[in-house]
């Protein structure tokens, strides 16, 4: 199944469940995430089966640091590598749950998440962009795109 066929309702339900569980904030599929503006912290993961494509999740770096504080409660310093590790885990959880829900009879498959910070520029006209607003006003961006 091509990533363009992934049902928005599946994405929305998985994203809201994962964000609420991991950073303890409700999330609504609303808002407008600016992929081209400011310094971002992002994580990308390849979708292997049953959906084929790539998923990217991103937040503003400052927002990533605040989410990190919510999760770690001061136990660990919000260093850049640690922020990216958090985003990788969020991406892994969202992508995995989405894959598992698309076809409950299939063995779901993912690549390993990668991450980065700074600008995120690789966008094409076929990219699907989603935004989620958290209870505290932070906006999380999610991008789905074909690999080939």
């Amino acid at each position: 199944m091509n990533v363009q066929q992934l049902d928005t309702r599946v994405i929305d339900s998985v994203v809201t469940e994962v964000l609420e569980s991991m950073v303890f904030l409700g999330a609504e599929p609303a808002g407008d995430f600016d992929w081209g503006g400011g310094a971002l912290c992002w994580s990308s993961i390849d979708l292997h089966t049953p959906v084929v494509g790539e998923m990217v999740i991103a937040v503003q770096e400052q927002d990533a640091a605040e989410l990190f504080e919510l999760l770690w409660a001061g136990e660990r310093a919000p260093e850049p590598a640690a922020l990216r590790a958090l985003l990788e885990e969020v991406a892994n959880a969202i992508a995995g749950q989405a894959q598992a829900q698309v076809d409950p009879s299939a063995t779901a498959g993912l690549g390993l998440p990668t991450s980065g910070s700074g600008a995120f520029t690789a966008q094409g006209p076929a990219d699907r962009r989603h935004s989620y607003t958290l209870d505290d006003g932070k906006v999380v961006g999610l991008l789905l795109r074909e690999l080939v």
Partner: peptide, 27 residues
């Protein structure tokens, strides 16, 4: 504990030797 868990995967993992299977994010 994995995000890649549905009924099929859980059954396969238990058959392989997992005692139980939980979905990420964990509660």
């Amino acid at each position: 504990v994995s995000s890649l868990v549905n009924d099929t995967a859980a059954a396969e993992l238990v058959a392989m030797g997992a005692s139980t299977v939980l979905k990420k994010p964990l509660s």
